[in-house]
Nucleic acid binder design. Structure first.
Length: 266
DNA sequence: CTAATTCCCTGGAAGC
DNA sequence: TGCTTCCAGGGAATTA
């Protein structure tokens, strides 16, 4: 699943192929993603100025506006030669003047391709987002939020208004590293500090792991460079904790699975 | 306002 | 073997 590290890895993989390129045209094969892909985006002739990431959104900034991309649950972006035939779930292509194209594949169609002109931070999807976890996010901010809300800590750190980019997998992993149970509601400043640090550590480690697979990014037959992460607790229900051997527990929180070690996490 | 729930979608695994 | 059922998840939209 593309979480923040996968999106960042994708951004780094795409950037050298996209920056400075001119958009010749685009193709929409199936516009039914999270929202319909606008058919009238004025992309033709635009030069790609930068490729940034905000939360899990990729922002492809052009002369006249920004192409907003989201990978949803199953989306991937690849750079391919122009003549590679599209397969079943290849919904959107961006054709460039350098002989390459960027292709979006998204079987479950939870992703998005949108166009926005003007200040990108004011876009409705971006304007209410909380801090980036690897930038301005810290213990004080988390502690203040914990005190002002009455929800389980796991759901809090997955709330994009609190901090962006923490998906279901890394939420469980970060809570394990911090020694905090996912259902906890009261958390002191020290606990918040451990958790904020664990979130940063977890995401950074995953981004670093992704870097080693970047060489596979441009590959017509291979995968787009996502990577298998070694998980402490996620998906390991009933298996022994790698720290203490206690069986990992699985619970439901807000229709999502959470995993934790009942001995290591209090 | 906050918190909880529903919904979009397909592929893969499990069950019969 | 082939069907049916369940589950996964981002996050906006909806409901309580």
């Amino acid at each position: 699943m593309p979480e923040l590290p996968e999106v960042e890895t994708t951004r780094r993989g795409l950037a050298p192929h996209l920056l400075g390129a001119n958009i010749v045209s685009f193709a929409i094969r199936n516009d039914r993603l999270r929202w319909p892909i606008p058919g009238d985006m004025p992309l033709r002739g635009q030069t790609i100025q930068s490729l940034e990431r905000r939360a899990k959104y990729l922002l492809l900034k052009c002369d006249a506006g920004t192409l907003i991309l989201h990978l949803g649950m199953s989306g991937s972006l690849r750079i391919l030669p122009l003549d590679v035939p599209a397969e079943k779930h290849d919904h959107f292509d961006l054709l460039l003047d350098n002989g390459k194209m960027m292709r979006l594949r998204d079987p479950r169609r939870f992703g998005a391709v949108l166009w926005h002109e003007g200040d990108i931070e004011s876009h409705p999807l971006l304007s209410r987002l909380g801090p980036e976890p690897l930038e301005s996010f810290d213990a004080d901010h988390l502690y203040r939020t914990v005190k002002s809300r009455n929800v389980a800590i796991k759901q809090l750190i997955m709330d994009s208004q609190v901090v962006v980019g923490v998906g279901n997998i890394y939420a469980s992993e970060a809570l394990f590293l911090a020694g905090i149970r996912p259902q906890r509601r009261n958390l002191g400043l020290a606990g918040c500090a451990r958790l904020a640090e664990s979130i940063k550590t977890t995401l950074k480690a995953a981004i670093d792991a992704g870097g080693s697979t970047l060489r596979d990014f441009v590959n017509a037959s291979g995968n787009p460079g996502y990577f298998q992460q070694q998980h402490w607790v996620y998906g390991r229900s009933g298996e022994p904790c790698m720290r203490c051997g206690t069986p990992i527990r699985q619970i439901r929180q807000g229709q999502r699975s959470s995993f934790y070690c009942p001995n290591c996490q209090k």
